[in-house]
Amino acid sequence: MSLSQRLARLFALITATFAASAIAGKEPAIATGKMLGDTCASCHGTRGKSFDEYMPSLAGIDRQQLVRAMRDYRADRRASVVMNRIAKGYDDREIEAIADYFSRIR
């Protein structure tokens, strides 16, 4: 690899990282959808597959349905016993990451 090629690669790496950290500068890093989704698994079942008729499964849920439900719980717009308190612990970006994760599980 020539010097100019190496410099070009290094520059690409720097700007790519800069772009990423520019976004990260405004919005701090969040956990992955899987990591966040694992916090739901202790009630909704591993990978969102519930064993229990009282607990809704999250695996394969429609993405928008999950986003809407979580926002409604968070704003106390939807009646609930525990979900309204839990939903308050996640911001919009986290809810979207969770929705991506569960909606893709078959």
Binding site: A31, M35, L36, T39, S42, I86, K88, G89, Y90, E94
Partner: peptide, 24 residues
């Protein structure tokens, strides 16, 4: 990467009366 953690402590005060604390 970033960790995410939760705790829910469920307690029964009687067989028909539950209380809980949920934290992220």
């Amino acid at each position: 990467g970033e960790p995410a953690m939760i705790n829910v402590c469920y307690s029964l005060v009687s067989q028909d009366y539950g209380i809980s604390i949920a934290d992220i």
